[in-house]
Structure formats: structure tokens, C-alpha cells
């Protein structure tokens, strides 16, 4: 069972990928088995004076996300993602959320072997 999260600047799959992870506006979620899109607001993490990336990891862990696509992920968030068992892919910015997910699903799956 896999669930893909993409840091997003808006709440639709056509929104641009947010290059930031912790201070992303939100996360587009895609469940490949159900072919279902949803959206998770990141307002709470954005409001953090510090530790926005860590708050975002907690948000994704609670949502049972298995892989996250973003522009760049900070060092502390990367440690937390590993602890939470969430795979991560950087450099996904410069396209829409839908394009990022499509590109990810076309790639040979390594870190996300369970899908």
C-alpha cells in the first residue's frame, strides 16, 4: 500500500510543486492503487517559528504517506523522514503535482518497493 505526497503550492493536482518541503503550502496526496487524489494543508507546520520541516514530517506520518516528492528537503526533516520510514525524492519542483507523480511512477521503484 503506497501513498505519495507532493509538496504543493495549491490544492489541486495541477498546482505547481512547492520547492520547499517544511514550509510548503500543502501536500497533494495520490494513492496509486485507488487512483485517488486528495490534499493535506500544511498550515500548522508553516505557523511554526522553528521546526516546520519536522512538523510536516509528523503530518505526513499521521497520514500514512510512504513516499514524498519535493524540491529540497532540509537535513533535520530528512533525518525525521528516515525515522518515520518515509522515502523521499528531491528535485521534483518545476512541474505540476500531477506531472511529478507521473514521473515518479514511471521510474523504476527502489525506495518505495512496497508499491
Amino acid at each position: 500500500m503506497s501513498l505519495i505526497a507532493v509538496s504543493a503550492q495549491g490544492d489541486t493536482p495541477e498546482a505547481s510543486v512547492d520547492p520547499r518541503f517544511g514550509r510548503a503550502k500543502g501536500f497533494g496526496l495520490y494513492d496509486p492503487s485507488a487512483q485517488y487524489w486528495s490534499y493535506l494543508s500544511n498550515d500548522a507546520a508553516q505557523a511554526q517559528a522553528q521546526g516546520a520541516g519536522l512538523a510536516a514530517v509528523e503530518l505526513l506520518a499521521r497520514a500514512k504517506v510512504t513516499v514524498v516528492l519535493s524540491g529540497s528537503i532540509g537535513p533535520k526533516a530528512a533525518v525525521a523522514l528516515r525515522a518515520a520510514g518515509i522515502a523521499s525524492v528531491e528535485g521534483a519542483d518545476g512541474q505540476t503535482v500531477r506531472q511529478a507523480v507521473a514521473a515518479h511512477l514511471e521510474m523504476p521503484q527502489r525506495g518505495d518497493a512496497k508499491s
Partner: peptide
């Protein structure tokens, strides 16, 4: 521990907490 910390210096995600001492 994680719920108490207002600064995300300790978070519980996996089997045990992860500490970020600089926070």
C-alpha cells in the same frame, strides 16, 4: 515527549523518539 515539545526538538515517529538537540 513529542506532544509536549513546543519546538519540535523531539519527535516520535518510528519505534523511538528522534532528538534534534540544536532545536
Amino acid at each position: 515527549c513529542s506532544r509536549l515539545c513546543a519546538f519540535k526538538a523531539i519527535i516520535a515517529l518510528g519505534d523511538y523518539p528522534v532528538v534534534f538537540p540544536e532545536m
